[in-house]
Amino acid sequence: MITAVQKPFDEISEMVKGHDKLLILGCGSCVTVCMAGGEKEVGILASTLRLFNKQNNISMEIIEDTIERQCDREFFDAVKDKILRADAVLSMACGAGVQFCAEVFEGKRVLPALNTRFYGATEQQGIWSECCAGCGSCVLDKFGGICPIARCSKSLLNGPCGGSQEGKCEVDPENIDCGWQLIYDRMKSLGLLHKLEENEPINDWSTGRDGGPGKIIREDMVL
């Protein structure tokens, strides 16, 4: 999923200042799963903002709603009227959802309530970690299903560097496992350690962000 965390409240309250009627719009997909921008989080943010406004004598009507996804046009139909009536939409979707909402409702002010972080998985309840860098050219077959690009702090294809200590990455030993230690352990258990002796050639990064904004076109599906 795409993971995100809520922006600092100060930043949000400053951002929404001056709007008389604000729609806080949650997203029912990834950010609901990572507990950053679903229905519950919409309620909490709305309550906090109302309390803040009351304390500061700010008059603002705050409406709450959540749709299934903010990255697909069809789901916006359900909240179309609410969006049109609001002065601004405070979107609790990921960056893609915020932008898409703005694209669907041209001329509407759409503001981000979240900081989008990464493509990740639920390591355990309440903990999410980055797994994929969206490089556009998957190498997981070569590394036992562990991505060196996303999980090594330096994206080394021929790791690990000297900063690997007791399974941890020196960049943040508390929180970051050395991706290459994980790769090594996995390849060893798979009996494939010899594969890691081969030098990984210089990479083609053009399939990812370095090739410019990505676009996928499925000719058979295009209307």
Binding site: F9, D10, S13, I44, S47, T48, L49, L51, F52, Q55
Partner: peptide
């Protein structure tokens, strides 16, 4: 935390 942010 939310109360602090709201100034309560």
């Amino acid at each position: 935390k939310a109360l602090r942010e709201a100034g309560i």
